[in-house]
């Protein structure tokens, strides 16, 4: 997904309601706040114990501690996000590390095709590997110029903005690379395996 191009002359100018509407996927409504959704208690992970790991179909698993993760090349990114509970928030501002950078550190097995993101608290979500690369996904630790708050998934969450936001696993601790697709926490109970908001892939069978 290409970054939105904003010319200097338009910075700060209000976008027309019509232009905003074109950015809201079908069945969604716009919100200005940032709703907090959670399927469980908010973990408060000690950063000294935090790790991010890539495992599964890789030649050697790799794991970063918090300080090493902060040394990886990071970038700021601005994205529209859509939750399957029907809210869409425009221009959310994040800071984090592209999954491309992380995957550069491992040698993928040629059978690698799917990924399960796993989190503190046991949450999982599944995403096809090709949808996590080429600038489409990040592990974010900053939001709106501040460290990512625990209720929004801090210290770090996956951000895959082109899919419904349940795919953007809060409190993410790693990626498991696999040959076959394995349904995650919500996908195993009626939610769509893919979750493209523009196709309204909300539930199994959509």
């Amino acid at each position: 997904m290409p970054e939105r191009f904003v010319t200097r002359g338009f910075v700060g100018r209000r976008e027309s309601a019509g232009a905003q509407a074109n950015r809201i996927p079908p069945g969604q409504h716009l919100v200005k706040d940032f709703p907090v959704l959670s399927a469980g208690p908010t973990p408060r992970t000690d950063l000294a114990k935090w790790t991010f790991r890539i495992e599964g179909l890789v030649k050697e698993p790799v794991s970063w501690g918090w300080n090493d993760f902060q040394k990886l090349p990071a970038q700021d990114f601005v994205k529209d996000i859509s939750c399957v509970t029907k809210w869409t928030k425009l221009d959310t501002r994040w800071r984090g590390v592209s999954v491309d950078i992380l995957l550069e550190q491992v040698e993928l097995d040629r059978r690698a095709a799917f990924v399960t993101a796993f989190s503190d608290g046991g949450y999982t979500t599944n995403i096809p590997l090709p949808e996590l690369v080429n600038g489409q996904a990040f592990v974010a630790y900053g939001y709106d110029g501040r460290p990512l708050a625990p209720e929004h998934g801090g210290p770090a969450r996956l951000v895959v903005p082109h899919l419904y936001f349940w795919k953007s696993a809060k409190w993410v601790r790693g990626l498991r690379v696999m040959e076959k697709d394995v349904s995650g926490f919500w996908e195993s109970l009626g939610y769509n395996n893919h979750g493209d908001p523009w196709k309204e892939e909300r539930y199994t069978g959509d």
């Binding site: 959704l37 399927a39 208690p41 919500w186």
Partner: peptide, 21 residues
């Protein structure tokens, strides 16, 4: 309940006991 479904967890260990979608 502020989630894509309803999740009921154990009061002692927070393990998921019931999910409803």
């Amino acid at each position: 309940v502020h989630a894509p479904g309803i999740v009921l967890r154990c009061t002692a260990c927070a393990t998921v006991m019931i999910r409803i979608v």
